[in-house]
């Protein structure tokens, strides 16, 4: 006696759902890490462009002489592409708040890597942003419903 067809469909659906949750977690992590590292390199590079200021080139091009600025830009390209990929299946109203975990990591990078003076108000503000992100992250399973029609517009339907 084999499994009833309904059982096989259900197992496939569970596998698809689990795979979607893992994929969402992985891309969310990539989006956050590339954003924080990219911003930190850019901030460091943008405040150290004096050396190129004497060169006979337009002022807006001076930052692009710095390899550190280019490293920051490369990481932000990784951030943009991974974010666009994540948006191909996840709601904007999920992606935006949950990846905002990066905001507090940016404050930490400013304080501990770049030596900025960060007061209590700024930390508290960043922590409120994280709290908002965590609450939003609790709705992650809203991203895992797959429409029977499969791919294309309307493949994801919001849970009502």
């Amino acid at each position: 006696m084999g499994k009833p067809p309904g059982g096989t469909k259900s197992a496939t659906s569970v596998r698809a759902r689990t795979s979607r949750v893992w994929k969402t977690g992985l891309f969310t992590a990539l989006v956050i890490v590339s954003n924080v590292a990219g911003n930190a390199f850019l901030s460091w590079g943008m405040k150290r462009t004096e050396a190129g200021a004497a060169l006979p080139i337009p002022a807006f091009l001076v930052p692009f002489l710095s390899p550190v600025v280019w490293l920051g830009i490369a990481l932000l390209i990784v951030w943009m592409l991974s974010r666009m990929t994540l948006l191909s299946w996840a709601d904007l109203s999920f992606v935006v708040p949950v990846t905002s975990l990066g905001y507090v990591l940016n404050v930490a990078a400013g304080a501990f890597l770049l030596g900025e003076a960060v007061d209590g108000k700024r930390w508290l503000g960043a922590l409120l942003i994280v709290a908002g992100s965590v609450i939003t992250g609790l709705t992650i399973h809203d991203q895992t419903r797959v429409h029977p029609a499969g791919k294309g517009a309307g493949a994801l339907e919001p849970r009502q």
């Binding site: 904007l92 109203s93 905001y103 922590l127 409120l128 942003i129 908002g132 609450i135 709705t139 809203d142």
Partner: peptide, 21 residues
């Protein structure tokens, strides 16, 4: 999009954090 009430609460906290900064 259907924005879950939890997402609205999360967004409100983010807004409060930004206002503080």
């Amino acid at each position: 999009e259907h924005v879950h009430w939890q997402r609205w609460c999360g967004t409100a906290l983010v807004a409060a954090g930004v206002a503080l900064i």
